[in-house]
């Protein structure tokens, strides 16, 4: 069966995002988010590898009435893997994590990632205290992904096993202060 295409997966998850807030980890996750669902309510990472996930937690605790989705690459997730136990302990009901798992560091030359081998991120999440995880590998399974990530009581984590091959990169603003101001204005009505 054909492997999942990363932007198609993300586009389906965010098809009806409503007032959801989305955090994307550095690199391709940020380009994909900007490509398929550009919005003021997106927190795009350009650096600080490993911190997209705890940022999503901080945001979910600050905005408990709104859905928060974190889109993290497998490398970013592995670097911040301890954050899963922090999230499980805090148990934010409004938080979903989508791990875009191509099993490699594609951005830097497609070096093999840890999830290509014996590490199973969904299993690590369970061991960290998550009660709900899923791993999707084909189109049929993706149909369940949107409700799981955007509606199911959190915290939830889904791993999407995606095909290698990044799409044409498109870049959101690199003005860090501007990104924060835009986001806060959209969410809080102030900078």
């Amino acid at each position: 069966m054909e492997k999942l295409k990363r932007r198609e997966v993300l586009a389906r998850v965010l098809e009806e995002r409503g007032d959801a807030l989305v955090v994307s980890s550095l690199g391709t996750s940020t380009y994909d988010l900007f490509a398929v669902s550009p919005a003021d309510e997106n927190a795009y990472f350009w650096g600080a590898m490993g911190l997209a996930v705890p940022t999503g937690l901080g945001l979910a605790l600050a905005q408990p009435e709104r859905r928060v989705l974190i889109v993290a690459g497998d490398g970013d997730m592995m670097m911040g893997i301890g954050s899963l136990s922090v999230i499980a302990a805090q148990a934010p009901k409004n938080l979903g994590i989508l791990v875009m798992d191509n099993e490699m560091f594609e951005e830097t030359g497609s070096q093999s990632g840890l999830s290509a081998g014996r590490a199973d991120i969904a299993q690590i999440a369970l061991g960290s205290g998550f009660e709900k995880t899923m791993t999707v590998r084909n189109d049929n399974e993706v149909s369940r992904l949107t409700d799981f990530l955007m509606k199911e009581e959190g915290p939830v984590l889904a791993v999407a096993k995606i095909a290698p091959g990044a799409d044409e990169p498109v870049f959101p603003s690199m003005d860090g202060r501007g990104l924060v101001t835009t986001f806060r204005s959209a969410v809080l009505g102030k900078s």
Partner: peptide, 26 residues
């Protein structure tokens, strides 16, 4: 006040950023 135990201190930097994006202070 919510006290959050971290696995490593750098998570606190991320959480402070996320809190600020959502209108809270950490």
């Amino acid at each position: 006040v919510r006290v959050v135990t971290l696995s490593t201190e750098e998570e606190g930097v991320g959480m402070a950023y996320g809190a600020w994006l959502g209108g809270a202070r950490a």
